[in-house]
Design a protein around this nucleic acid. Structure first.
Lengths: 364, 364
DNA sequence: CCGTATTTGTTCGTATGTATT
DNA sequence: CAATACATACGAACAAATACG
């Protein structure tokens, strides 16, 4: 049950049964435990169980037969095209999201589809709720940016359900670790950060601080690229030079840690940041401390956003082909809807981003 | 009651009430006796009455409101709820749109609705196509930012159709000129620009250039505020000091015109811009020409976006309560869906923005 | 075919919670 | 604040349909 605990008892039972049905754990025609069994098992009165079942029957999830029992209804016989595609994003980042959605929308609108938009605010429970909503709404396909993709997720069941119902889906930006082979359009984050870190080492920097996001796969992969670039030229990996942050502390942790490092006279040649927003904050922290960029310390961002171009010292960064990412995901989804039996090679698109050199790095 | 006596008590009550409604003895909107009243009058238990009423509600004959009563429904207007709300924006401006949509999404998601997103790219034909699509999709409501709101539109028929189908809609940001009294959530653009221009006159400026967008109602209203502020202190209106631009030439016209003015030694004390993006371009143009901001010329923006805060000289601007705008629109729509007969006073929300003084203006 | 257990359907009573006026 | 109206939840009894030995 484990659901919205502030809800009513009957609605908890409804969402429990609904989930079982939507996820295919109770199959059409299958009998549901009797009212008395459910009441006893869940410590509810029979009246409450009846209320839940009567509502489910009304919504067409189950049907009851007098004297026989209650059965799961077959709702899929009437699966019509809705021409709606679900799009679930993590949090509406001001500088990435709109362009990606625009790319998706352009391709899908051209093909007569509309997008149903949801954003999870990087909250896993909301992701559950919205996936369930999408299943109920009978969408024709789904494009989803996974929430906290580096963390354990118990939402895998929804993806299985999508597959059971024959609804294609495409991951963008990231993917869950057990689902590397599922359809996806991603950026090669490791390669991107590898090119940043290599660029910094070529400028002669050795004490390179890396700042990474710990709860999404992008952060993990960018960290890999950072470590690989340093290893290539024989710099031993130094955990003290790596700062990890989470969605929840992104506004304070990176800048605060850099400040502490400066106060403790931790040697810093360069700072390679998870994205432009962090880089901009790092730039401000350094400036406030009287450290010049790039003369004293080099700083790099990631995403080539307005944070990079509007920073007093334009930030060297990695481009983010936002529109292209959205368009590619939409096109892949359309192909999959046309031809459901696509091979793995065709359902994985990796876009390699490029280093964009601006003014925030100098030779040591 | 006089009906099939072999039936159940609750079904007798159902057919009694159904008949009253179908024969028009109980009219749509009219209140039905309370559960307790019916129970007492008909010598039934309240539970039995509730059973009958809940089935009638399910069939769409009546609807209940917690704490108020049970009412006769208008069966001609009961469409099937899709729990989808259409949202049509003009063009996905990077710095306004995501927050507005986020505000809309937050309120609607909380209430179990999803948004179907479309953007017109400020193209009137696309607006037609998308309005038609929304009508086909059977949405429960619509939030729309009108495309080229200051121009003639021949999409009025779609709004009429929405009304005929009983689908409520809310304008945001702007409205068409023949539809001033339709439900809307807008910013008081005239007041916003009035406060900007008044601020500039109070600093002693007289030759104040105004740059406005000609094809949306926001531009028209901001121009009104500008003209009113100048008129207030007796500055005669000078058309040579006003630059009009359109969606299509927004990237070049404003900056190019300022450059021409500078070359022609047109006197400029200050430039009041349509938005921060234009103001940033004007700032760059002035700087490239060797004109200092704010020492030589004052510049103002509008929207309080990152263009304002990331400009080397932070731009004095007008705030844009993006989230609040979206939330207010969503809440208004929800109210209208609940209570279709809302008066005009309640369906028009005007948010008055505030001047945000930063560093780009100085005394003459 | 009968009897019994099971399952859903109808109806009552009672108590408490919550929204509206 | 009190009264009113709907909402949730428990308990109990009996009826009607079905399944099965």
């Amino acid at each position: 049950m484990h659901k919205d605990s502030n809800q009513t008892k009957y609605s908890m039972l409804i969402s429990y049964l609904k989930e079982e049905i939507l996820l295919g754990r109770i199959k059409p025609g299958e009998q549901i435990p009797s009212e008395n069994t459910l009441a006893k098992k869940l410590s509810l009165s029979r009246h409450t169980v009846r209320k839940a079942i009567s509502m489910l029957a009304n919504e067409g999830y189950v049907y009851t037969e007098h004297g026989r029992g209650t059965y799961c209804a077959d709702r899929n016989k009437t699966r019509v095209e809705t021409k709606n595609i679900g799009v679930i994003t993590t949090y509406i980042s001001e500088y990435i999201f709109p362009r990606v959605v625009q790319g998706i929308d352009r391709v899908l609108s051209e093909n007569g589809y509309s997008i149903i938009l949801k954003n999870t605010g990087n909250n896993t429970e909301k992701e559950s709720a919205y996936l369930e909503e999408m299943l109920e709404k009978n969408i024709d396909g789904l494009i989803i940016e996974p929430t906290k993709s580096a963390m354990y997720t118990n939402n895998l069941k929804y993806y299985e359900a999508l597959e059971n119902h024959g609804i294609p889906y495409v991951f963008i930006h990231g993917y869950y670790q057990k689902m590397e082979d599922k359809p996806q359009v991603i950026l090669d984050d490791e390669a991107g950060m590898y090119s940043v870190a290599s660029y910094l080492t070529e400028l002669g920097h050795r004490e390179i601080i890396g700042i990474f996001k710990a709860d999404d796969i992008q952060g993990i992969n960018r960290h890999k690229g950072y470590a690989r670039a340093l290893a290539r030229i024989g710099i031993p990996y130094n955990p003290d030079n790596v700062i990890w942050f989470y969605t929840e502390d992104r506004a304070v942790k990176p800048a605060a840690t850099i400040r502490t490092m400066l106060e403790n006279k931790h040697g810093i040649d360069a700072v390679a940041c998870y994205n432009d927003e962090i880089a901009f904050k790092v730039y401000e922290t350094l400036r406030d401390f009287g450290v010049r960029v790039p003369e004293d310390v080099s700083v790099t961002g990631y995403d080539d956003s307005y944070f990079s171009s509007n920073c007093p010292v334009k930030l060297t960064t990695v481009n983010h082909p936002k529109d292209m990412l959205g368009e590619a995901a939409a096109r892949l989804l359309l192909e999959m809807m046309k031809n459901p039996a696509m091979g793995r090679e065709q359902t994985r698109k990796v876009i390699v981003p490029e280093l964009v050199v601006k003014d925030s790095c100098a030779k040591k």
